Simulated assay, not measured.
Amino acid sequence: MPYAPSDGARIWYEETGAGRPIVFVHEFGGDLRSWEQQVRQFSRDYRCIRFNARGYPPSDVPEADSAYGQAHAADDIAAVLDALAIERAHIVGLSMGAFATLHFGLRHPQRATALVAAGVGSGAPREQRAAFAEQSRAAAQRFLDEGSAAVAPEMGMSATRIQLRNKDPLGWAEAIAQLAEHSALGSALTLRNYQALRPSLYDLEAELAACAIPTLLIVGDEDEPCLDANLFLKRTMRSANLLMLPGTGHAVNLEEPAAFNDAVARFLASVERGSWRPRDPRAVVGGASLPMGRAAVR
């Protein structure tokens, strides 16, 4: 099995295809298998790399709280690139993996050619931070007390995941079965030290505003906890485009794989051919949206 050595853990990865590299970074409830529908398409033209985060076997499950956190998650992406001798790559993440993707762009900007952050923002608004942290700690204890197999079905019936069950019952069942196999200890430590303690995106406004990496934000319009954060990111990052998928919840790559893959493919193609451009400052409405005179249209 191929492992990338990182700080305090070995990260297990897979690669498929050849060409420009794309790294896929999974969400809390998933693992590298969550990207199957993306790898099947993109590996026709790209070198696709996916890995299991620390705490998700066959990657190591460190037992120390200090071995988990936002910085570790971002740096583990760099460790995988180092293990494969890849200098720069497109980075595509979902939810927890999207947080890691954005932080990778901030911590290692010279190594990211493009960022795709899907379903990012749970618990990010400052007024939600305390409640989100408490919910994360409570969920961590349930993983320890009851095990992953007991917690997985309930997670799958949550307000932002029921959409997948309604659209694709077989895909939903597969995702729940995979979550049920996860390490209860790894899940608990991830919740307690990564999810509960990660900084709010709103506290990173200056850093995000300065980010020049081409970025695509994708969110489902029924992913209520992430809507405001995605609007904040779009307004903050001149480098970001925002796509909202209708009638869609949190796991956008599983719910709408064709739309997700098409949007990511078109975005990456625009970056690669040099036609992607940051937001024109004239597109920012600072009050009146209609011409108020000759000076307004210059």
Rank of each mutant, 00 (worst) to 15 (best):
A130V: 13
R40M: 05
A130M: 06
R161P: 01
Q38I: 02
L243D: 10
A124S: 15
R47N: 04
I11M: 07
A138G: 06
Q110N: 08
Q38S: 12
A74F: 07
R126W: 03
A133Y: 09
D82Y: 02
E205S: 12
R129K: 15
F42V: 09
M155V: 11
S6R: 00
A74E: 06
A212H: 01
W172F: 15
Y56M: 08
A133V: 10
Q110G: 11
R88C: 10
A139D: 03
P169D: 09
R88W: 10
A53H: 13
I77G: 08
Q38C: 13
F104K: 04
N166F: 01
S187W: 00
A265G: 14
L94R: 01
W12G: 02
R111S: 08
G220E: 03
H108L: 02
G147D: 08
I213W: 03
P225K: 13
P58Q: 13
P125Y: 11
Q178K: 10
A85S: 14
I176P: 01
C48I: 06
A173H: 04
A79E: 02
A149M: 10
A100N: 09
S289F: 15
A210M: 02
G247A: 12
R50Q: 10
G286C: 12
W12T: 00
A140F: 07
W172C: 07
